[in-house]
Lab assay of single mutants.
Amino acid sequence: HNLTITQGKLFFHYNPKLCLSEIHKMEEVSGTKGRQERNDIALKTNGDQASCENELLKFSYIRTSFDKILLRWEPYWPPDFRDLLGFMLFYKEAPYQNVTEFDGQDACGSNSWTVVDIDPPLRSNDPKSQNHPGWLMRGLKPWTQYAIFVKTLVTFSDERRTYGAKSDIIYVQTDATNPSVPLDPISVSNSSSQIILKWKPPSDPNGNITHYLVFWERQAEDSELFELDYCLKGLKLPSRTWSPPFESEDSQKHNQSEYEDSAGECCSCPKTDSQILKELEESSFRKTFEDYLHNVVFVPRKTSSGTGAEDPRPSRKRRSLGDVGNVTVAVPTVAAFPNTSSTSVPTSPEEHRPFEKVVNKESLVISGLRHFTGYRIELQACNQDTPEERCSVAAYVSARTMPEAKADDIVGPVTHEIFENNVVHLMWQEPKEPNGLIVLYEVSYRRYGDEELHLCVSRKHFALERGCRLRGLSPGNYSVRIRATSLAGNGSWTEPTYFYVTDYLDVPSNIA
């Protein structure tokens, strides 16, 4: 807008934040220059609390790290170098490059900038070799853009010569660093050979998330399962459950009422301010606690030095998902009996873990797994792929695949051998790939016309006998059925096997 004052003059007093240069501009645009008398524009009460600059400061050096910015700028000295009290560095987070010096300023003089007072450097006698002032900004957020400017702080001049310097606002972004852990990993099994893994992005990506790394490792069953005799009275049979499938998407929606109208769909109840505040506090606490764990609990591995020492970490090797089922080394339970199943799973520490690289999504279907087997899954978020990966501390989750139908069934015939004193040795093959492992066998036998009897055969007993022995049988026709019990439950009964026990007292003698 054009402003013209045809008559009258300007009068400025007691404006401590208004620089004289701005008042002189007002004289020019209003056409009143030359009308004012000496005392109409006070030299001592206008701009006496402001830094009124008329020179431009330029930054000469900028260096960044993930949490620091090192700045240096060209030296500046007023005509009387004693008038320079120091520099004021202003900075704040700036997602967009549209910041002005006066953003967030209120009537009390406060604003949204963080201000650092910096002492002037030592003055050199040689004007050509003056030290460049600077400042190291610490405690910054990774991968965050900051708006920065600097200006001088000078003393009051009796001659009211307006001098000083100020830089333009520059924008500097800190470097990326390792992201925080992925949030809320959930693993479920939808079949006997697959596990579905879902997660949420890290709360602090500290860069642009480029991919996720998912490692999985087959877990050995508890050692007590191999040692305890679950045929003993009072000892509860062990059981394991597989990871249940995901709930429906509708039930997972946030901010939804727990109660549904019987007449149909209901609208979600909005969260109160107290609920939102509580969630923010919980989120802040979780982030602080995660940072504490990362800094205190997890110790970084030592990389190899120039002395030739090897990095103890196993090298990563990509495998196809079809090879995942046989990740671990199978060892027989008892070496003397080769027909026992290889369900003991000690994992070799030198073995390469299978892994998958996930790009542009937060889910993965891990296939080719062994049925009813526990897996430990390790999830890392990465925001750099080359020249070397920059990934987060791992988040861990466990899951067990679903049982395989008929995996616990005894394959092959049940054979028998009759000894003296009416002892019958029953023999059968253990299931080759049971659900988890076989903890015991149930032997059901009966003599024709009598009630059915049951015998429990422990895992250890089966390994020693290759089956079991029935003792003290009365003469007669017998039928026997056997079924295995694994961590997933009972298998199917075998087809009945028949044998006849004679009275050993009636056996004919070869003595003449």
Rank of each mutant, 00 (worst) to 15 (best):
S203Q: 08
S203W: 05
P205S: 11
G207R: 02
N208D: 14
I209P: 11
T210L: 10
H211S: 02
L213S: 15
L213T: 15
V214A: 06
F215R: 07
R218F: 03
R218D: 05
R218Q: 09
Q219Y: 15
A220K: 08
A220L: 07
E221A: 01
E221M: 14
D222I: 09
L225Q: 11
F226L: 11
E227I: 06
E227P: 10
E227R: 08
E227L: 10
D229Y: 15
D229N: 10
D229L: 13
D229P: 14
C231I: 01
C231N: 01
L237Q: 03
S239H: 06
R240T: 09
R240Q: 02
R240S: 08
W242K: 08
S243T: 08
P245A: 06
F246E: 12
F246M: 15
S248Q: 15
E249K: 14
E249L: 12
Q252G: 11
Q252R: 07
Q252Y: 05
Q252E: 10
Q252S: 11
N255I: 13
N255D: 11
Y259R: 08
Y259A: 09
Y259N: 04
S262T: 11
S262D: 12
A263Y: 07
A263N: 13
G264S: 05
C266G: 15
C267Y: 07
C269M: 06
P270C: 02
T272I: 06
T272R: 09
T272L: 08
T272V: 12
D273P: 11
S274T: 06
Q275D: 05
L277W: 10
K278H: 01
E279S: 09
S284I: 00
S284F: 09
K287Q: 08
T288F: 05
T288Q: 02
E290W: 06
Y292P: 06
L293S: 05
H294N: 03
N295A: 11
V296Q: 05
V296W: 15
V296C: 15
F298G: 09
V299R: 14
P300S: 07
P300Y: 06
R301G: 01
R301V: 08
T303V: 08
T303L: 03
T303M: 12
S304Y: 08
S305A: 10
G306C: 09
T307N: 12
D311F: 09
D311S: 14
P312G: 10
S315T: 12
R316W: 12
K317G: 06
R318W: 15
R318G: 04
R318S: 14
R319N: 07
R319Y: 03
R319K: 13
R319W: 13
L321F: 11
L321S: 08
L321Q: 14
G322E: 06
D323K: 03
V324E: 02
V324L: 06
N326W: 05
N326R: 13
V327G: 09
V327L: 11
V327Q: 11
T328Y: 13
A330K: 05
A330H: 15
V331Q: 14
V331F: 13
P332G: 07
P332Y: 03
P332W: 13
V334N: 07
A335R: 12
A335V: 10
A336H: 11
F337T: 10
P338S: 09
N339F: 02
T340F: 11
T340M: 14
T340P: 10
T340Y: 09
S341W: 10
S341I: 08
S341T: 05
S341K: 13
S341L: 12
T343P: 08
T343A: 14
T343V: 08
S344K: 10
V345D: 05
V345C: 12
V345K: 10
P346L: 03
P346S: 06
T347Y: 09
P349R: 07
E350V: 15
H352C: 10
R353A: 01
F355R: 06
F355H: 13
E356I: 11
K357M: 10
V358L: 11
V359S: 06
N360S: 08
N360H: 06
N360W: 14
N360Y: 07
K361H: 09
K361A: 08
S363P: 08
S363W: 09
S363Q: 11
S363E: 15
I366R: 02
R370L: 09
F372K: 02
F372R: 08
F372V: 01
T373P: 00
G374D: 09
Y375N: 01
Y375C: 02
Y375W: 06
I377P: 01
E378T: 14
N383L: 12
N383K: 02
N383M: 15
Q384T: 07
Q384I: 04
P387G: 11
E389S: 10
R390G: 08
R390H: 02
R390L: 08
C391Y: 10
S392T: 02
A394L: 06
A394H: 14
A395G: 07
Y396P: 10
Y396L: 10
R400W: 09
E404D: 11
E404T: 10
D408V: 02
D409K: 09
G412Q: 05
G412M: 11
V414N: 01
V414R: 02
V414F: 03
H416P: 09
E417N: 02
E417M: 08
I418E: 13
I418A: 12
E420F: 14
N421H: 06
N422C: 04
V423Y: 14
V423L: 02
V424L: 10
V424Q: 02
P431Q: 04
K432M: 10
K432D: 13
K432L: 07
E433R: 10
P434T: 08
N435T: 00
N435E: 01
G436L: 06
L437S: 01
L437V: 07
L437P: 08
I438L: 12
V439L: 11
V439N: 03
L440A: 10
L440H: 14
E442N: 04
V443F: 01
S444P: 00
Y445M: 13
Y448M: 03
D450N: 08
D450Y: 05
C456L: 02
C456R: 02
V457T: 06
R459P: 05
K460I: 09
H461L: 12
H461S: 10
H461D: 15
F462R: 13
F462N: 09
A463V: 05
A463F: 11
L464S: 14
L464V: 11
L464T: 15
E465T: 08
R466T: 04
C468G: 02
C468I: 12
R471A: 08
G472D: 11
G472I: 07
S474G: 05
P475S: 06
P475R: 08
P475I: 11
G476I: 00
G476E: 01
G476Q: 00
G476T: 01
N477A: 10
N477I: 09
Y478F: 04
Y478E: 00
Y478L: 00
Y478G: 00
S479V: 13
S479G: 05
V480C: 11
V480P: 01
R481M: 11
I482Q: 01
R483F: 01
T485E: 02
S486I: 00
L487G: 01
L487R: 06
L487T: 08
A488V: 09
G491L: 01
T494Q: 05
E495F: 12
T497A: 05
T497N: 06
Y498T: 02
Y498F: 07
F499N: 00
Y500G: 07
V501W: 02
V501F: 12
V501T: 05
T502A: 14
Y504D: 15
L505A: 09
D506C: 12
V507T: 07
V507H: 00
S509Y: 15
S509R: 06
